[in-house]
Design a protein around this nucleic acid. Structure first.
Length: 426
RNA sequence: GUGGGCGUAGCUCAGUUGGUUAGAGCGCUGGGUUGUGGUCCCGGAGGUCGCGGGUUCGAGUCCCGUCGUCCACCCCA
C-alpha cells in the first residue's frame, strides 16, 4: 500500500527538531552522570552476528530479533547491549585493569508487541562494572540512577527501586524445598516471575503441576510463594540458611546506599527475580511510585556471563535505562523541559547591497562562538523579528544602507531590551 | 495473538434519525503604505472524511474487509 511509504515502520520513531532536542537533553544527562561516576563511553555495531544473541538465550528471543541473512551470514540488530560489551571485554580480558567502568547510549531493536512504554526500537543508557565481585559496585550503579533521576527533575520519591538477590532465593530454596532437585531452580524462576501478573494461586498451580518441570507438593509450593511475599530483610534472613552470604550482601548494600543518601528510596522485595537467565546475584528494578508505567530501568549481577561466552571468569553487574518510559514519566509529572534552539543572533541585511557586509558580520560572530542565523532571502523586518522571537534568539542585528553608510549595525535586543547601534569592526 | 474504542484540514476536534458546494479553534500564509516582533483587525490557502469493497436514488454518516492508532488481556523485559 502506497501510504505505508509515508509512515515510519510500526514501533519506530521519527525525531523532529523538538523531539531531538528532548532526546539530546536526556542523553546529555546520561553522559554527564556517567562522567561524574567515572565511567567511560564505548560503542559497538548495531548489526551483530545473530549467534551472539542466540547462543545463550532460548528460541523465544530469536523471534524478537530483527535478523536477516546476507551472503550466507546470519546477522541481527542488537536487542540489548550486554552481549556486545561482553564480547569487547572478552577480547581484551587479558590486558584490562579491573574493575572496568563502561557505559553506552545506544539504539536497540526488538520485534515485539507494542504497549505503552515499549516500542520496537528504543535508546538505552547502559552502565556496567566488570571485575568487581562486591556490592560496592551495585551501590555505585544505584547511586548513578538516582543522580540521573534527580537531575531530570524526579527527586522526591517519585521513583522507587526494588532490590532482591537471586542468590538468596537459590540458597533458600536449595536448602529447603529444592534440596533434592536443584535443577528445578531455573524453571521455578521463570514461573515466579509471573507472580504479579497471574497471581499467587495461578503460580502455585503451576509449581504443583505434576506434568510441569517443577512438580512441588502443594504445601511446598505455597511456602515458595509465601517466601516471595517477604518485604523485609529480617524476615528474609529468618527464612534463609544461617550465615547466608546473600543476606550479608544485601545488608551491606543497604548500608552503602545509606552513605549515598538513597536508601530511603530502595526497598527489599523478594518477588523481584527478572526475566533474563544470566543473572546470578543482586537484581533490581525501578518503577514510578504510582506504578502506572513499566519499569524505568532494571539490572543486576551476572557473574558467569563471560564464561558462558567462552571467556575467563569475571564478575559483572550492570543495568539498562530506556528512553521511552522515562519520557512518559516526565510527561506524566509535567516535567518535560521547554528547550529552545539556543540561537544567539539573527543577522539581517536590509537590501541585497548590504548582504556581503552582513555575511562578514555573521562570520565574525560565528567565529566568536555565537549561534547565528543569517536571514537568507529578502524578508520584511516584521517577519524577521517574529521568527527570531519564536526561535528564542537574543538579538537581531539589522544592517541597512543607512547603517552601512555610517559603519554601524543596528542591534535589537529581544524581550523588551531596546535597540542601539554598535560600530562595525573589521 | 484475543477483545474493545478511535481514524474528518498541519494539530485538537464538531458534523444532527444517511440528503445539495464538509465546519470551528489553533497553526500556516498575505495585508493593515516606503526599514522593526509578541496584542488586535481583515483576507487567503489547505481535506478523494485512513484505504478497498458493499447496501442505497444518494454514504463522512450503515455493513464487510484491510491498514494505522489507543486501551485491556496474553506474552515478554
Amino acid at each position: 500500500m502506497a501510504s505505508s511509504l509515508l509512515q515510519a515502520p510500526r514501533g519506530t520513531r521519527d525525531f523532529y527538531p523538538e523531539d531531538l532536542r528532548f532526546r539530546t537533553w536526556l542523553f546529555d544527562h546520561f553522559r554527564e552522570v556517567a562522567r561524574r561516576f567515572g565511567f567511560e563511553e564505548v560503542d559497538a555495531p548495531v548489526v551483530e552476528h545473530e549467534e551472539l544473541f542466540t547462543r545463550k538465550a532460548g528460541e523465544e528471543i530469536v523471534e524478537q530479533l530483527y535478523h536477516f541473512e546476507l551472503h550466507g551470514r546470519k546477522l541481527a540488530l542488537r536487542p540489548e547491549m550486554t552481549p556486545s560489551i561482553a564480547r569487547m571485554v572478552r577480547a581484551r580480558a587479558g590486558g584490562l585493569r579491573l574493575p572496568l567502568r563502561w557505559f553506552t547510549v545506544t539504539q536497540n531493536w526488538r520485534y515485539e508487541r507494542m504497549t505503552r512504554g515499549r516500542k520496537r526500537e528504543h535508546f538505552q543508557w547502559n552502565l556496567d562494572v566488570w571485575g568487581e565481585p562486591g556490592v560496592a559496585a551495585e551501590a555505585e550503579l544505584l547511586a548513578a540512577i538516582f543522580t540521573l533521576l534527580r537531575r531530570i527533575g524526579l527527586g522526591a520519591g517519585q521513583v522507587r527501586v526494588q532490590v532482591n538477590s537471586r542468590a538468596l532465593l537459590e540458597e533458600t530454596l536449595r536448602a529447603g524445598v529444592l534440596r533434592d532437585r536443584p535443577a528445578a531452580f531455573e524453571p521455578l524462576c521463570v514461573r515466579i516471575d509471573k507472580l504479579s501478573k497471574i497471581g499467587a494461586d495461578a503460580v502455585v498451580d503451576q509449581l504443583v503441576d505434576p506434568a510441569g518441570p517443577v512438580g512441588l507438593p502443594p504445601a511446598d509450593a505455597r511456602d515458595v510463594v509465601a517466601l516471595l511475599g517477604l518485604r523485609s530483610l529480617d524476615d528474609a534472613a529468618a527464612a534463609a540458611p544461617a550465615g547466608s552470604p546473600a543476606i550479608t550482601d544485601l545488608r551491606r548494600l543497604f548500608e552503602l546506599l545509606e552513605a549515598y543518601g538513597v536508601a530511603a528510596h530502595v526497598d527489599f522485595d523478594a518477588s523481584v527475580v527478572r526475566g533474563l537467565a544470566y543473572y546470578t546475584g543482586i537484581v533490581f528494578e525501578a518503577f514510578d511510585a504510582e506504578r502506572k508505567l513499566r519499569a524505568v530501568c532494571g539490572g543486576g549481577r551476572y557473574d558467569r556471563l563471560l564464561e558462558t561466552l567462552g571467556g575467563p571468569a569475571m564478575p559483572a553487574v550492570g543495568f539498562g535505562f530506556g528512553d521511552v518510559v522515562i519520557a512518559e514519566l516526565l510527561a506524566e509529572h509535567d516535567l518535560v523541559p521547554a528547550l529552545s534552539r539556543g540561537l544567539d543572533d539573527v543577522v539581517c541585511a536590509l537590501g541585497e547591497a548590504q548582504r556581503p557586509a552582513a555575511i562578514r558580520l555573521a562570520t565574525r560572530l560565528r567565529e566568536a562562538g555565537r549561534s547565528v542565523e543569517l536571514v537568507l532571502g529578502d524578508v520584511r523586518p516584521k517577519r524577521v523579528l517574529d521568527d527570531a522571537d519564536r526561535a528564542g534568539a537574543r538579538r537581531v542585528l539589522f544592517f541597512g544602507p543607512d547603517e552601512a553608510a555610517r559603519g554601524v549595525v543596528r542591534v535589537r535586543e529581544l524581550g523588551g531590551g531596546g535597540e542601539h547601534e554598535e560600530p562595525l569592526e573589521g
